[in-house]
Structure formats: C-alpha cells, structure tokens
Design a protein around this nucleic acid. Structure first.
Length: 807
DNA sequence: GACCTGCTGCGGGGTG
C-alpha cells in the first residue's frame, strides 16, 4: 500500500513498467506517466475511493483477481476526488493505445464542468502521450474537425453534442469510436430522473453500434450519495445491475450547525399579501416596503457579511429582491455591498463575474438558485442559507455539501422562513404554516431518519422517444419500423415501450408528417420531421420556453420569459440592480432597460415540482408531535428552531389538535364542499384528483389536501368505488369503453396489464394538461395517456391513502 | 409557488 510520501516516491521512481507488483498496490497499477504526474503534483497519498476504484477497475480486490471486470459506481461528495478515481484507472488502461480512435468518453451535464474537468484531465496526462479533447457548443469548429479527422485519446462531451455527432458526423462514427474502451458519466445523480438521463442512455446505446468487435465499453458513474444506489446501477448496466461495483466515499462525519429563523407577524409577514385601499401597493413587488424581505435582508447581512456564503432561494424573483434588500441594508450600515445574484436567467458574462468574485478570498455572498448546487467549485463556503422551505432532502443535502469543505470546519445551515398561512381560510391546510412543517420534516428525515428520496426514473417518456425516432432516422437515412423498435426499445434505452405503443407513437407522428413510410416500407422523415431535425433546438430533449433578451445599452443582462408582459416605464430589479424598462421589441424579442431608482421584483413563470409522499407524511407526524400527547411537556420542539419558529410550531400543533387535523381524514367545509386531508405526495394527490374527476366530482389538489366541490357523502361513495372493488370496474371500462378501438389496442397488452395499470390508464384521461414534455405536442392524447399513467400517477399509493381516508 | 441544463452547417459578406 502507498501509505506515506516515502513509499509513494519509491514506487514512482522505481517503477519502469516491467517489475511485478503486489496486486493490492493500487499505485503500482497506474501507468508510469500518471505515477510521475501524481508525484509532481505532490499528492501525499491516494484517497480511499481512488485506491478502491483502481483496484476494482483492474478486477482486483482483497480476495485476488476477479474474472469479469465490472462497471463502477463511485459515490462521494463534490471535491472528493471522484474525477481522479475514474480517470486514473481508465487512463492507465488506454495508455498504450491512445491513437486510432477515441478511447475514453466522458459525458458531463454542464459546459463549465467540462471545461474544469478538461484542465484536470490534461494535468493528469501531462507525462502521457494522451490527447485530451472537449466538444460542446462553445468549442470552435477547427478543434472539432481535427478530432473528426484523427480521433484519439479522451473526449469530454455533453449529451447534446453527442446527439449532434450521431446525426451530423454519421460517416465518421466508426472511425471515431471503433476502439472505445470506457465511458465516464459525471454527476450521474442529475441524469437519473431527468429526460436528459434517458436521452443520454439512448445516445450511448446507439453509439455502441459503432464500437468494433462487439466490445462493450465499460462504464464509470460518478455521483453524489443517493437514496437508491441500485437505481444508478440499473442506469449504468441495465442487463446486469448486480455486477456494478459500488464504491462509496466515507465522508468524514462533519459537525452540522443548523438554525431555522422565522419571520412571522412581528416582522410583518402579513404584508406579503396585498393591502387594501387607494395607497395599496403589492409589497411583495416592492422590497423597500416589505418588512419581511427587509428583515431577512438585514439578518443576511448580520449573519453573512463577513464571510463567503451561498444563499439558495427557491425562485428567481425572490433572489433578486433579497439581494436588493440585503445590499440596501449594507448601504445603510456603511458596509460594502457584497451580495451578488446568480441564476439561470442571467447572461453568461454576469454569471462568470459572480463566479470569479466568489472564488476570490474576499468575503462575498451569492444569492442563487440551483445553478450553484453542482458543477463549478466555489471553494470555501462558510454558511449555506436556504430562504423558503427546501423542496427535498436530496436537494438540501446537495446544497449543504457546499459548506464546511475544509478539514475540521463545521457545516453551517441557516433556513429563513416566512408565515404563509391564512388564519381565516376555510381550507384547513391553509391555516397551517406548511413551509415550516415541510422544512422541519425535511430536516428530520435528513438528520434523524437519514433518508433521501430515491431517484424515480421516467418509465415512459414518449417525448424523448419521439426525438430519438427522428434522430435515429436522420442517422441511418431510413429504416423499417421493426428495426427502429429493435434498436431504440428492445436493445436500447426505451425497454418499457412495447411494439404496440411504439406503433401508436409512429402513427401519431405519421399523421403530423413527422415521419412517412415509403412504398418499400421504410420510415423516412416527413416535412415536419425535417423541420424538427434541422432546428437548432433539436439537440436537447428538454423543453425551454421562449424568452426576451434583456439589454442595457450594449450589455446583455439575461433573459425574461415571454409569458410576462412588460411595459415601458415599469421598474425592474434584475441582475442585482435597479432598472426601468425603456421599450419592448416584440419582433426582435428584446427588452431594453436603463438604470432607475425604483425596485420591482421580476416575474418568472415556473412549474410545480414533485414532493415525495414521505416528506408529507413526516409533516403530519411533526404536526401531531408538536401538538403534544398527554401534556405540554412532551411536545416536539427541535433545538434548531429559533424562539419564534418554535412558538409557531407549537401554535400549529395546538390548532391541529383542537380541529383534529394531524391525521388523514375528510373535513366538511360547507354545504356541498369538503376537503380531504391527504398528507401525501404530489403524484398521489394528482391520482386522487383524477379519481374524483372520473366520478364527475370537481376537485383540486393543494399541498396536503384535496378540496372537493361535492358533499362528503358523494365524495365517500366515489372514493369507495376505487378503494374497494374499483379495480374490476376500471378494467371492464378499458376493455369495452370508447378507447378500445381495434387499431389502437393490443389485445395481449391489455390482458397483461395489472389492475393498477388499467386504473391508471383510465384515470389518465382526466389529467390535464396532457402534453408537458418537449415533443408531447406531436403525439395523440390517447398515446400520451399511456405515459401519464406510467409516470405521473400512483394508483397503489393512492389506494393506500384512500383506505385511511374512507376508513 | 418551484430550479437547471444544451445547440449545426453553411452561406454571404468583409478584409488583407
């Protein structure tokens, strides 16, 4: 083992590549050029995950050699040395055959990350004859064509650029990837449940056809700690996930300091709602006048001004007004303005300015969205702030991992919450401080239960399938439907897609002229398909809304969604500064602004994310315990809550106890209306909403409840029809109902469906909107319902909740 | 009331 610098130096200088070495010596398994590079970089030792990865890649472990070299899954914190853990063994393997083909492919989700990793890999390779290339949208055409002309070494690329290679460089793919040996996927957790992950899986499977000699390049996944490592293993190696070698970094046990700050009535939180009267302004849009925003801004300055910090706020508009408020407080106190904004709607130039500022030693705080959750390394962050409730345990953990990087330094988390309750509301859930309950629930799941949401990959993403159909035809020039199904589905990434569903997708695309069939039976692109494929937007599988460019003179500030109406003269806070709109050019999609004194938060339109059922279940548990059992003595009051937060939680507990809200039940709210207190996740909420709609009852899902436009008795009857014996009914319908037109239904497919799947398919008709993903618009509702049933509903979970509701 | 990510090849015009 390389346990000391002395041993390390010895190994590096003596090894000439011929002497045998003990099998457990990871360092000795490295190529000589790498050994020399590590020695020059003055590494004292390999980290445990690096040693383990090197041994595992070489098929070695404590018991000796293993016959089958497996794929690797390396899980560790950012900055835990994962990149080197992957590249040290991979580079060593391909050291002797750098030329003639790209030998190792690295796929990363961000251009900035690829640029960082490019430098790190080049550094590792400086004593090897190993070319390192990168390919993404900012890389020049010359570098790209020279790689195509003489492929070699390591290629770092984005999924979208890989897509472009497959359709724009098809004749060269065999030469480029014929000798590919390894694929490294960075930030694998970010790919697991996204459309992009499925896209990447399909690209890699298609690329595999160009690798010579039937060789399957081995894969290495690099990931943060995730709730269900087997999901990542299935992603890496769908055929044999159990063979994937898992390597987990034992992150040192860091002390975690948590504080939850509450801004209730005293801080004027009621001011978040518009006041009445002629003087009424919407205070949420005017940070100077909003006492809550001012109070949080003042506390941010007090807590953070002297150090480097990251503050995550959930919405871009909120980020802007918080930075404005905090810097206003700085001015009042005669302090330097050190609060910056960073989010995805800012121009690249402005974002890079902030990133540079954050890396410097001077104390600066970035108020940011998930842009700074992964990717670029901010270095030493003292405190992580979270304004508003965390969405999930997974995202909170990821954010928290950005602080306390230095040895012996604690992680620090400050959560800032406002009172979002409406004491007079008829809906019981609105009388409760849900943000506080969710924040405490997420914290308890993380700290006490040590639970993280498992990734839930999409099962039937027909939008990405549509993109891959168009791309697959573009790649080959034309193919029979059966062959395309074989490539994309049977042997590809869309394994859940039956021939019947695939045929229905093709029929949808045929009616819209996306694909057409030649006389000889080949599928080719139709006019619309050619248009889709030629678009610059084709390469990404995810949807992006149309936007205005925001400009101040010659400077590009960023973008605003077109859904927002802006008028000349309006004030706007953007990029951390105050502006007035000069004019809106709808033809050029441009908004011109000039500096101005007024402040108004910009509007961004977002969509609802999904909250896991267990988070909501934890919320009701917290509420119940806060209400106490026998006496006030055993009321639950976590020590990380400040006095006001603790008081508000206690008060909510009392309210819940008084009105019996801390359990699943149906609450009568008026004549002909009632509310189901479901306390469950987004997907089950949506399912229950659809169940009621299917029985003709108007219902809308809130956070932890579903409000119904029907009396309690009718609702109970409707729910019981599903809770008991509903399965047969739903099956009967889908077999004999209007959907069962012969052309669209595969008899065996229906037969093979479980009763839950049949119910889901029936319910999917009542889910709106049906088209949510990028290419859903190109598909018929009837086939989209298959996708809704698989990905957006949870019948089993809903039946479990109903069993409690209707007792 | 919710976040982020990515992006070709070619033709036309200007310059040395």
């Amino acid at each position: 083992m390389v346990g000391s610098l002395a041993g390390f130096l010895g190994a590096a200088s003596e090894r000439s590549g011929v002497e045998p070495f003990p099998p457990a010596d990871a360092f000795a398994l490295l190529a000589p050029g790498l050994q020399r590079a590590l020695w020059e970089m003055k590494w004292k030792d390999l980290r445990p995950i690096q040693r383990e990865a090197i041994l595992a890649w070489n098929g070695v472990d404590d018991t000796g050699r293993k016959p089958v070299p497996a794929d690797l899954l390396i899980m560790a914190q950012t900055a835990g040395g994962k990149t080197e853990a992957a590249f040290l063994p991979v580079l060593s393997q391909i050291a002797a055959e750098a030329e003639g083909s790209v030998r190792a492919l690295y796929v990363g989700p961000l251009k900035a990350l690829i640029n960082d990793q490019f430098e790190r890999v080049e550094l590792l390779c400086r004593h090897m004859d190993m070319p390192v290339h990168r390919w993404h949208g900012d890389v020049g055409a010359d570098a790209k064509s020279s790689l195509v002309a003489s492929p070699s070494g390591v290629l770092l690329i984005t999924p979208e650029s890989l897509e472009s290679l497959l359709i724009n460089r098809t004749p060269r793919l065999g030469a480029m990837f014929g000798g590919l040996r390894a694929v490294v996927i960075d930030e694998l957790h970010a790919f697991l449940e996204s459309e992009r992950g499925l896209h990447l899986a399909s690209l890699l499977s298609r690329l595999g056809r160009y690798v010579g000699g039937g060789v399957r390049p081995r894969r290495v996944g690099l990931s943060a700690t995730i709730g269900d490592p087997m999901a990542a293993a299935r992603y890496l190696c769908a055929d044999a996930p159990e063979t994937v070698r898992m390597i987990e970094g034992k992150g040192e046990q860091k002390e975690l300091l948590v504080r939850v700050h509450w801004y209730g009535e005293e801080a004027g939180a009621s001011g978040l709602r518009p006041e009445h009267g002629p003087e009424a302004r919407d205070p949420a849009c005017d940070p100077e006048d909003d006492p809550t925003v001012r109070a949080i801004g003042a506390d941010l300055v007090t807590h953070m001004h002297a150090s480097t910090n990251l503050v995550f706020a959930n919405a871009k508009g909120r980020i802007e007004i918080l930075a404005d408020a905090a810097n206003a407080v700085c001015r009042e106190r005669g302090l330097e303005e050190r609060f910056h904004v960073h989010h995805g709607s800012l121009s690249r130039v402005l974002r890079e300015d902030v990133e540079r500022e954050m890396k410097e030693p001077s104390p600066d705080t970035a108020i940011c969205s998930s842009t700074l959750e992964m990717g670029i390394d901010i270095g030493s962050v003292r405190t992580v702030g979270q304004v508003g409730t965390p969405w999930s345990v997974a995202s909170l953990k990821q954010r928290l991992g950005r602080s306390g990087r230095r040895d012996g330094e604690s992680r620090r988390l400050r959560v800032y919450l406002t009172d979002d309750s409406e004491p007079e509301s008829e809906n019981p859930e609105k009388r409760l401080p849900l943000d506080l309950l969710q924040a405490v629930a997420v914290m308890e799941l993380m700290l006490t239960d040590r639970w993280v949401e498992p990734p839930s990959p999409s099962r039937l993403d027909l939008s990405t399938l549509t993109q891959q159909v168009v791309s697959g035809i573009a790649e080959t020039g034309g193919m029979r439907a059966a062959e395309l199904h074989e490539r994309l589905c049977v042997a590809g990434a869309f394994r859940g897609v039956s021939a019947a569903v695939f045929a229905r997708v093709l029929r949808s695309l045929g009616t819209r002229d996306v694909v057409e069939q030649t006389a000889s039976g080949e599928l080719i692109l139709g006019l619309e398909g050619e248009r889709v494929r030629a678009s610059r937007e084709f390469y990404a599988t995810f949807h992006t809304p149309r936007e205005y460019a925001v400009r101040a003179g010659d400077a590009a500030l960023g973008t605003l969604p077109m859904t927002v109406t802006l008028r000349a003269g309006e004030f706007l806070v953007f990029a951390g500064r105050r502006w007035a709109v000069v004019n809106v050019d709808s033809a050029r999609l441009e908004v011109m602004v000039r500096p101005a004194p007024g402040a108004k938060a910009p509007m961004f339109s977002g969509s609802m994310g999904e909250v896991h059922a267990r988070v909501r279940e934890k919320m009701v548990e917290v509420l119940g315990r806060a209400g106490g059992g026998a006496g006030a003595g055993d009321r639950f009051a976590p020590g990380y809550l400040d006095t006001r937060a603790a008081a508000r939680l206690r008060e909510a507990g009392g309210l819940a106890r008084e009105h019996d809200l801390a359990r699943r039940r149906v609450v009568e709210t008026g004549p002909g209306t009632c509310v189901l207190m479901t306390w469950t996740g987004t997907r089950i909420q949506r399912t229950i909403e659809a169940m009621l709609a299917a029985r003709g009852i108007k219902a809308s899902a809130w956070e932890v409840s579903v409000s119904c436009q029907a009396g309690m008795e009718d609702v109970m009857v409707a729910l019981r029809s599903f809770a008991g014996g509903g399965e047969g009914r739903a099956e009967g319908r889908s077999a004999g109902g209007p959907r069962a037109d012969a052309g669209n239904t595969d008899a065996r497919g229906v037969e093979a469906r479980s009763s839950h799947e049949s119910i889901a398919l029936e319910l999917a008709k009542h889910v709106e909107p049906k088209a949510v993903r990028k290419y859903d618009e190109l598909l018929d509702d009837a086939v989209l319902e298959e996708s809704i049933a698989a990905d957006r509903l949870d019948v089993a979970g809903a039946l479990g909740v109903l069993a409690e509701l209707v007792g």
